[in-house]
Structure formats: C-alpha cells, structure tokens
C-alpha cells in the first residue's frame, strides 16, 4: 500500500502551492514528501506511506493517487 503517483502537471498550475506552499507536503502524517527546486512535491519515502488518504482528500488539485493494494504478504492467523 502506498502512494503511487503525483500528477506533476497539476502541481505546475496549483495556485495554492504557488502562494502558501504545497498542501500534501505540509500535512502528510508520515512526512513522505519532499519538495523539488520548483517547490513541487515528490515521493521521497514511499515505504513509510500508511495509505491514510489524507493527501488525496486535501490536495486542492487532486493530483495524488494512492493505492490500497497490499504489497506485503498477508500471513495466516
């Protein structure tokens, strides 16, 4: 389970990012994002994503896609 993609084109035109800064970088509970030189977010710590979908909810551009599919073995009880 992790963030899959960020739509960079949507970030490019994001008015919020250009004025008050990137929302998803600001709010991520696990702090998985970092900003590039242009102030656009990239996924720096993908393994720490907890798939809480708060970035999906808060991103004003709906630029973030998070998958819920598990990438670890679900062991029997």
């Amino acid at each position: 389970m992790a963030i899959k993609t960020i739509d960079s084109e949507k970030c490019q035109v994001c008015p919020t990012r250009q004025t008050t800064g990137c929302v998803v970088y600001d709010i991520c509970p696990m702090d998985v994002y970092r900003l590039d030189e242009e102030g656009k977010p990239y996924i720096a710590y993908v393994r720490d994503c907890q798939s809480c979908f708060l970035c999906v909810r808060d991103c004003p551009q709906q630029a973030v896609y998070v998958t819920a599919l598990v990438d670890f073995p679900i062991l029997p009880y």
């Binding site: 600001d26 991520c28 509970p29 708060l54």
Partner: peptide, 12 residues
C-alpha cells in the same frame, strides 16, 4: 511530530 489536525488518531 506531525502536522496538528492531520497527525494521530483523532483525524480518522
């Protein structure tokens, strides 16, 4: 350690 209002359990 996170962002208040987005960190922890209450937000969920």
């Amino acid at each position: 350690k996170g962002k208040v209002a987005r960190s922890g359990a209450s937000v969920h």
